[in-house]
Amino acid sequence: MVQLLETEEQQEALRYFIEKLPQLKEAMESVEEKIAVVQHVINDKQSLEALFTEFEEKTAPFRLTTEHIEALATLIQLLPTLVQWLQKAEEFILFATSVINDRESMAYAIEGAKDIVPIEKGLNILKETNERFQRERDSSTVSLLRMYRLLKHPLIQDGVKYIETLLDVASKHK
């Protein structure tokens, strides 16, 4: 032992140990206190009983089973992927909310939609047609010549040609 203590390394270690003794004592006391607290809690059956009873009462209506615990673990595992999707969804919702609340953008979108789908133009044509039909309504019979003239209208011609093509294609697929 004496021989061992004569080595420089051992003396250095001993010096360090002695120097640190106050801190080590403090750390030991702290650990001792914490262990004591844990021991007291374990021994305090009344408190533990109340704690577990309350927990069980609160979770009872959920009828949690081991499957739920497993599902929870799976959910935690999936969280990194899910968060990415949720962030995208959040961004989209924020964008949509911003558009809806942005009067200028909404007006721009509606104006643009009118250009793409000319609803107003179509409605105006129908309105004018109805008005003219009511105004110019006559009781004369439609003659064959009038029917013939109508058949020469480009729209009717196109329509007839389309039906011809359709019948031709349909007969090939019989």
């Binding site: 924020l94 964008f95 911003s98 558009v99 942005d102 721009y108 979108a109 793409i116």
Partner: peptide, 15 residues
Amino acid sequence: NLLPIVYWNGMLKGL
């Protein structure tokens, strides 16, 4: 029709 709306409400909002 779309890019101006995306600009004001998406890009400038950092979305």
